[in-house]
């Protein structure tokens, strides 16, 4: 009997030792690291299926100003794109204290395309390429000084690019 219990104890100790050592291995090998990094990705905003939800999740509630202080170019030539898989976009503005910029495509399955977190040393213009599924409004929203500046451009797409 005594022999039996010590055996069981020895097994559980062995088990614990093994699980602890494997955990340590996994932790040090960096396999866990990406998950902690990804925790900062705003999943709710990027998987929102309407523009309003995405904006609310990303930028919060604030006064929205439809504004011409944001210069915003989509497509080349403007408002037209042959290939929806890579549509050039350029955002330019002289606004100060920009905190965040969001780029949305209204008719994409998930409207939010990109979100930029600015610091004080960042300056516009910002250029990039995005995918656009079909003819749609493309919206740039800039959050600066607690206000949202919104600019909309309609773009025609020949070949949809959301595959």
């Amino acid at each position: 009997m005594a022999n039996n219990t010590t055996n069981i104890q020895r097994r559980s100790v062995l088990k614990k030792a093994i699980s602890v050592s494997t955990l340590a291995l996994v932790a040090t090998s960096g396999l866990i690291l990406p998950r902690t990094l990804l925790a900062h990705w705003p999943n709710e905003a990027f998987t929102a299926e309407t523009m309003e939800d995405a904006l609310l999740a990303l930028l919060g509630e604030a006064e929205v100003v439809d504004s011409s202080v944001v210069k915003f170019k989509v497509g080349s030539p403007p408002s037209y794109a042959v290939n929806g898989a890579s549509v050039p976009i350029e955002i330019h503005s002289d606004l100060a204290n920009i905190e965040r910029i969001a780029i949305l495509v209204e008719k994409n399955p998930f409207p939010l395309a990109m979100s930029l977190d600015f610091t004080s040393v960042m300056k516009l213009p910002f250029k990039t390429m995005i995918k656009i599924g079909e003819d749609s409004d493309v919206i740039a929203v800039i959050r600066a000084d607690g206000k949202l500046y919104k600019t909309t451009r309609f773009v025609e797409v020949d070949i949809g690019g959301c595959a």
Partner: peptide, 19 residues
């Protein structure tokens, strides 16, 4: 200086330019 979060709507071989 900058953090960019991307959704699936970013083009293949993503390109960015900023100042």
């Amino acid at each position: 200086v900058l953090t960019i979060k991307c959704g699936t709507a970013t083009s293949r071989n993503p390109y960015f330019s900023f100042v």
